[in-house]
């Protein structure tokens, strides 16, 4: 990973970009550029090989059938697993989060193998979809302010021993297990159910990924006034729904 530039890889926008997932790529790009870090963004379609030389990989949310197709193609390609073995950072959302685990339930109702990059297993909930604003406290180890997001899913994700919960819920369903956890991470691989998109509401997560990629402890400050205003509004809405 080079010191002065960032290779950002957006995995399979043709399949996994249903919930404004491009937003996470745009926020990472913008906040790196504001720090004068040049960004090369590579959007990889599902009929193209996943490059192994990226610094940050983003993988988004999608519907049930494209999720299965994405898992099949990522397993066959192997590029994302090789990139992680090389130390790359992966941030995944919703359907993408489930794909990073050992297994999820596909659109045909059958268990579908994931990539095994996170020690999680996902199933499908029986009840209503989890839809609404979420508020959670991020693992103190990451040193980030509270997580705000919008969840819109029916998944249930169980964490294994080597996956740490990304956050502890104050409001919302998160992993859907009823144990108060939301998302998971292990070293440089992250997963969450949060849309919004999550980086727009939590720009410090984008900054964390940039810092990890550049191997620096701090970044120059940028003007966060609109992010702060949005965060305050959505945190209030989560605590006291309209």
């Amino acid at each position: 990973m080079s010191e002065s530039s960032l290779r950002l890889v957006w995995v399979y926008p043709d399949l996994l970009s249903t919930y404004g997932d491009q937003g996470n790529a745009l926020v990472v790009e913008r906040r790196a550029t504001q720090r004068r870090v040049p960004v090369t963004r590579v959007d990889v379609r599902s009929d193209q090989p996943v490059p192994t030389s990226g610094d940050i990989y983003l993988i988004g949310g999608g519907e049930d059938r494209p999720q299965r197709l994405a898992a099949e193609r990522l397993r066959r390609d192997g590029g994302l697993n090789r990139a992680v073995a090389n130390g790359a950072i992966v941030f995944s959302v919703c359907a993408g989060y489930q794909i990073l685990g050992h297994e999820f339930i596909n659109d045909l109702g059958r268990p579908e193998p994931g990539l095994g990059l996170l020690d999680v297993v996902s199933t499908r909930g029986e009840g209503e979809r989890c839809v609404g604003d979420v508020l959670a406290d991020i693992d103190p180890q990451l040193g980030l302010p509270p997580l705000t997001g919008f969840e819109n899913h029916q998944g249930i994700t169980h964490l294994g021993r080597t996956a740490r919960p990304l956050a502890r819920l104050r409001v919302g369903k998160g992993n859907g297990t009823g144990d108060g956890t939301e998302g998971a991470f292990n070293d440089t691989v992250f997963g969450t159910y949060m849309h919004g998109p999550v980086m727009a509401r939590n720009p410090h997560i984008a900054d964390l990924l940039i810092k990890l990629a550049l191997d620096v402890n701090a970044l120059p400050p940028v003007d966060d006034q609109w992010y702060d205003a949005l965060r305050a509004e959505r945190i209030a809405a989560a605590v006291q729904p309209a």
Partner: peptide, 30 residues
Amino acid sequence: DTSWLWDVDYTRLAGHPILVIGDRKMDLAV
């Protein structure tokens, strides 16, 4: 769910004065 705002290419509005209102103006601002 307002995440669709991120699928809209607002750079098409470059050069226009842009005025933002509505319940979710903060989402639009970001």
